[in-house]
């Protein structure tokens, strides 16, 4: 199947594989140990999936802010996003 029209690059392929992998991982985690709604530092009660969504969305905004406000490489924002995602998942 020719996927040239989708204009794939190694970077974007890696990005989607990472997102897909995380979703599958979250699904398996949910199957093994179903989430319990709770309240952390976020102002709403959240399930694990909610916190994952919030973490991903805010990570996207961190990247956008990084590009818009700094001239440094976007790769520096990646570890910040990973740490942020872990904080939201654990304490959110």
């Amino acid at each position: 199947m020719d996927l040239e029209w989708m204009a794939w690059t190694p970077v974007t392929a890696g990005f989607f594989i990472a997102i897909g992998g995380m979703l599958v991982g979250m699904g398996i985690w949910q199957y093994i140990s179903p989430t319990i709604e709770r309240k952390g530092f976020l102002p709403i009660k959240t399930t694990r999936g909610d916190r994952f969504f919030i973490g991903l969305l805010t990570s996207a905004y961190i990247n956008i802010a990084w590009v818009g406000l700094t001239s440094w490489s976007l790769w520096f924002a990646v570890p910040i996003c990973i740490v942020w995602l872990i904080i939201v998942l654990r304490f959110g």
């Binding site: 029209w5 989708m6 204009a7 794939w8 690059t9 974007t12 990005f15 989607f16």
Partner: peptide, 13 residues
């Protein structure tokens, strides 16, 4: 999802 993936691909090229 597939169109969104394509848009992401286009956005970096």
């Amino acid at each position: 999802i597939i169109p969104l993936m394509t848009v992401v691909n286009y956005s970096v090229q």
